[in-house]
């Protein structure tokens, strides 16, 4: 069965759905549209479902999971951010942060849809289950870190508004500081653990598959540096009792570093660890 037309349709449809969804959450955050409030969660579920269908159809159509290039990874990352957020919204009934987090998913999905290439000729080792675990753990880690940064950003906005006695829209709509800090911290811990798992699997499994494996591989070194940064940040919170604004700034700085280093590494890399 030729699934290419379905892939093409979903390739366009999914970012359009995200754009619509982000607009709905944006209107709810910045304006007053009680009727929209009723459709937001169903719209979220529909978008996430279509995204999952897209990933499945793509996997079948091209005979490999979409984890072999930066832009394939980006759509999976967008899906996992959206799924992560859906879980949070359904569990906490807190939807004020939706606009900011779904904007992140929209950005990743748009970039993916624009630049993704259809490929069949991928190496055999990319079909490996262990690689699946390795990539899944890394993706979960980066998703959690992204969510942590988003909550950290919202924390800083609210902190600034409360401190400066402005009490505007941010003050009205966002949940309380402690909740934002807790969400950011939990996501960070989760991301830290997941990245750790990805690194361990990678270090044990990759040398057995790749002949040109090197412990000086930039992506491995980059991820290790990031992991150590988060270890330091989490350690400082625990040991030195850092709280609030300072730790949120560290979280955001670490995320900027993740984003920059991963972009630079992925764009310039040509060794075994590069995407195909």
């Amino acid at each position: 069965m030729n699934l290419r037309p379905a892939v093409l349709l979903l390739l366009v449809l999914v970012p359009v759905l995200y754009a619509g969804l982000t607009t709905v959450y944006g209107l709810l955050f910045f304006g007053d549209f009680p009727r929209l409030a009723r459709i937001k969660t169903p719209a979220l579920l529909v978008t996430v479902t279509f995204h999952c269908v897209y990933l499945i159809v793509r996997t079948i159509a091209f005979d490999h999971p979409p984890i072999t290039s930066v832009f394939e990874i980006m759509t999976v990352l967008a899906a996992s951010i959206a799924i992560g957020y859906t879980y949070i919204e359904l569990r906490t009934r807190e939807s004020a942060t939706g606009f900011f987090i779904l904007s992140l998913a929209l950005a990743f999905q748009t970039a993916s849809s624009l630049f993704i290439r259809d490929r069949f000729d991928i190496p055999v080792y990319l079909h490996s289950i262990i690689l699946g675990f390795h990539v899944s753990a890394a993706l979960l880690g980066y998703t959690a870190i992204s969510l942590s940064a988003a909550y950290g950003f919202l924390y800083l906005m609210l902190y600034h508004e409360i401190k400066s006695s402005r009490f505007g829209l941010i003050y009205n709509r966002l949940p309380n500081l402690e909740m934002l800090e807790t969400m950011s911290h939990r996501a960070e811990v989760f991301g830290f653990v997941a990245l750790g798992v990805a690194i361990i699997i990678g270090v044990i499994w990759l040398p057995r598959v790749f002949h040109d494996f090197s412990y000086w591989d930039p992506k491995l070194v980059g991820t290790l540096v990031i992991w150590c940064l988060y270890a330091l940040a989490l350690g400082a919170k625990r040991r030195l009792g850092w709280q609030g604004r300072k730790t949120m700034i560290i979280t955001l700085v670490a995320f900027c570093f993740v984003f920059l280093s991963m972009t630079v590494i992925n764009l310039s890399l040509s060794g075994f660890h590069s995407f195909h």
């Binding site: 609210l158 409360i162 003050y171 949940p175 309380n176 500081l177 402690e178 909740m179 807790t182």
Partner: peptide
Amino acid sequence: ELASKIFAD
């Protein structure tokens, strides 16, 4: 109201 914007519980 302000207290409940700073603290969760």
